[in-house]
Structure formats: C-alpha cells, structure tokens
Design a binder for these strands. Sequence first.
DNA 1: GCCGTTTTCGGCCCGACTGTTTTCAGTCG
Length: 575
Amino acid sequence: MISNADIARILNEIAILLDMDGVVFKPRAYEKAAEAVGGADEPLAELHKQGGIKAVEQIPGVGKSIAEKIVTLIETGKLPYYEELHAKVPVDLGGLSAIEGLGPKNIKTLYHELGVRNVGDLEKAALAGKIRNLPHFGEKSEAKILKGIGFFKQSRGRIPLGVALPLMLEIEERLRTLRGVKRVAIAGSVRRRKETVGDGDILVISDQPDAIMDFFVAMPEVVHVHGKGHTKSSIKLAIGMDVDLRVVPAGSFGAALNYFTGSKDHNVALRRIAIERKLKLNEYGLFRGEAAIAGRSEEEVYDALGLPYIEPELREMTGELEAAAGGKLPKLIGYDDIRGDLQIQTTWTDGAHSIEEMAAEAQRLGREYIAITDHTKGLAMMGADEKKLREQMKHIDALNKKLKGFTVLKGAEVNIDKDGGLDIDDQTLAKLDVVGVAVHSHFNLTRREQTQRIIRAMENPHADILFHPTGRVLQKREPYDLDIDAVIAAAKRTGTILEIDAYPERMDLKDEHVRKVVDAGVKLSIDTDAHSVHHLDYLHYGIANARRGWATKADVINTKPLKQFLACLKDSKKR
DNA sequence: GCCGTTTTCGGCCCGACTGTTTTCAGTCG
C-alpha cells in the first residue's frame, strides 16, 4: 500500500520537473497538493477505499486532475505521467535538490551539459572544475555547490529528530499492540531528544520474543536486516536509519533502559559511581556481588546509586551528575506546560490556513492563546505593510468576540533590515500585542555587523521577541555568524525574549544556547513557527530542546496564563 | 492545475539577493 509520504514525494518531484520546463503555476499547484497529502491524517489509500476519487478530491489543493493521478498511484503503484516527465531528466531529484542553491533549472542544466544524475556525479564535476564553465555558473557557484555537498554528506547518517521521532513512535505503537508484549520503550538519543540521531533503540518486555522479532524485521519500512536473534534484532529503514530492538526481562528493564538511553559518557560515569560503592552496573541491573539490588526501573537504579532520577534530556555529561548529587537538578519544563503559541503564519502571508483555522486547531490542542505573526513587507513575499496589519488587527478583534476560553493575539514577524531597523513603523508596532523580530536576509554579514544589527533591533522599545535567533536550518544552512553571548546580554538589558523556534528543521535556539540563556536569567518563548495546522503540534520539539538546555517552567514566558504573559512584554505598561 | 461571500474564467506572492552578467536567470522565503 502506497503511503501518503510516497504520494507527496512524487507530487513534489512532478513540481520540480514541471519547473524545469518553465511551466508556470502548475508546479505551485502540485507543491500545494503534496503538502496537503503529506499532512493528511488518514492514509489516502484508505480514504480512497472508503469514498472513492470523490473523497480524494475533497482534500484542499487537490482537484480533479491531481486526484486522478493519486488514484492511479494507489491502484497501480505507478504513474505514467510522472515517469514520462522523469525520463526526460532521470536524476535523483530528492538528493540534488537537497543541495542548497540547486533548483530545478540548475539541476536540468547540470544533467544536460555534464550528465550529472546524483550527488556523487555532482561532486566529481565540481572537483574537476567543470561546473564553473557552464552558462550562469561560475567559480563561486561551484564552490557553493561543494560546500553544499559537504553539508549533505556530513548530515547523512544523522537523521533529524523531526524525521526519526514520528517513525519511532509509530513503531513503538505497533509493537505495543502485539500479543505477548508487556511493555515497550524508546531508548537511545531519540529518548534524549537530540536534534539529530544516529540510530534508533527500542526495548520490549516479553516472554515471546521470537514472534516479536518476526514482526519487527518484516515491517514495510525495512530495507535490510542486519541481524535477527532471540533478544536482539537490527534493521535498516528506508529513510536510512538503523533501528535495534532488544527484548529484556522485566527485572532488568530499568537497567537496560538506562544503559541503552545513554549518553555513553553518562553511563560510564554512572558505572564509576557504582564501583565506588562496591557495586556493578550493567544493562541487566545493579549488583552487589551476585545479587541484583536494582534494575526494574530507572528510578530504582539512580536511587540505589544515591542519586535522584535524572531526566533523559539531561544525560549528556554537562554537569547533571554534580547537580544531582548536590540536589540542584532543575525541575524541567513539562511537555504540557505551554499555554500559548507565539509564532504562527496564516493565509494573510505564506501560511496554508486562515487565522480561524489555526485558532481552532490550537484550541483543540489545548492552547489558551496564540499570536498571529505574519511576515512583514521587507520580506519580499507579499509581507504585510502597516495598512494590512491594521486590517488584520480589526479582523482579529472581531474574531475574539466569537471565541470562548481562547484568545488570538495581534502580532507580526517583523523583518529586521540590514542596519537593524524594523520595516514597520513604531506607531503600528505599538498597537500589536506581540512583536516578533527576525532576520531573513543578509545572512553573510561579518560577526560584528550581524550582532550589532540584531542588537539594534532588540533595542526597539516594541520588539518583544527575537524569533529563530541564529537562523540555522538543520543540515542545510549554517547559523549566521553571531556573538550569542552579546545577544543574550542585550536581551537581558532590553528585556527582549529569545525564542526557541520548535519547527523541527530549525530548533533555534539550540540546546547549548538555551542553557546560556537560562543561566543569564533571560526569558524564553517556545513557538511552533506553524505555517499550517499540521505544524501546531510541533511544540514538543521546542520543549525537548528547552529541557536539554535545563529550562524550567519559570524560564519560559508562554507557560504563563494570558494576563501574566502579557505583563512580561515590553510595552505592557501602556496597556 | 486549482479555485470562487467580488469571479466557473482569469487569476495565481513577488521582490531581494546572488552570481552571473552588461541586462538578467535562478533561488529563496
């Protein structure tokens, strides 16, 4: 059965292929449809089975023509239209378009002129200096491609948490429902919520391991079985990630969970503590001589070592054992502690859903308030100007009258100009509830210029939050060169909040920076940067990052009820 | 190819930035 992800990938590739031929508008239609399909809750194959092509056509962005193509894919697993297009430029579109700076036109040129079919070919051509001679390429673009390839290679093997976690949770759920499974847990760096993970680890308690192993190695995503045994099996998934499954006895579950969660350094240190106490710690338990004195739960293991329970997100050997021994572990912000989401884009600019739709979904997810923060004019994508923002404010006022137990705040993601000025006048900013400021251009300024520019923006008396402070895109774009300590100091001085953008490709601020912010006593916000209703539940990625940075509930302003939250903002006194 | 509380036809985000050019193509957000 074809998955939504596969259908979405093919629709996206059609968009790229049409773009190559200079076709206008159609590519956008396919992209839009791909996004809708990728975000659909129910498998389209199932939807089609229930309601036929009509049900497929009900998906917004999918009309008659794309619905027919989707049905063809569901029924035959193939799509002649796509295959014909792809035959003209038979290249690895997914790989090549993942290289920053390579778009449809360049991919086409590289194929026709140099026969580049994949990233390997691309690297050879670039190293041989062939790319610089192509029309509209030069030495700089060749160098940029090589840098992009470096990024691509470096990221291969490491899977972003945003990709790994949903898949691991799905596998966990499948195993949980198997007969004979008493308990399942995800371990490894996925459990520690590292922003990228190398492989996956799953633990199961069961007295019928063989049936579980049979099921595990036969899952549809499995492309290779490294090994299969009674207590351990190891597979490779289609997304390139290895996953290990271990079946352990109930009495060892805590010790095994601790052992396989890591980090390695944390485990080594724990075993050292055990030795000091004349004990032995391994994945089967904590032992005094032959006798197991702990192992059923992690709490039991830590307790027997004279330590309080240490949350997985802290187990990185960055001081957690000393803090635990001294009773100074922070009470981390919880995954249910956020009340409001402060960065949300809508159809007023580049979002996929209306203010009403975003509000309804956020309320359904249990939020109490959201801020609508569409882009502003300096960002050249029909960003809002002062007039449009005033219109939107009126619209939101009217909407709030209809909502019960939920508030939509008026905000904007205001663009920071090259010199640190904001592209919306102060008069209009003063009327907004939440002013986010963000960098979207001039990524390559010197460290000094970039830092000064951002600090100047934070000095604006209306600038409440610095959105995605370092501008990185995981495995794709480096953060801009920035003196983060100076930015944190400026945040402290000006009362500006620093954001953790929870969007899985951003995770910005990153964990180490969060720790610095917390230490400096500067406040954080955790926001989804949602461009669609499907992004609104990304908050947990940001919360995980906050926890990895030792943040407590009190460090994060949008854990507060609405009124208290508003009182933390810069021009709250005027309210 | 999709869509419609101005439209079932005629719109559809468009401008900055980069690197290539000497007037602009391609990418990005």
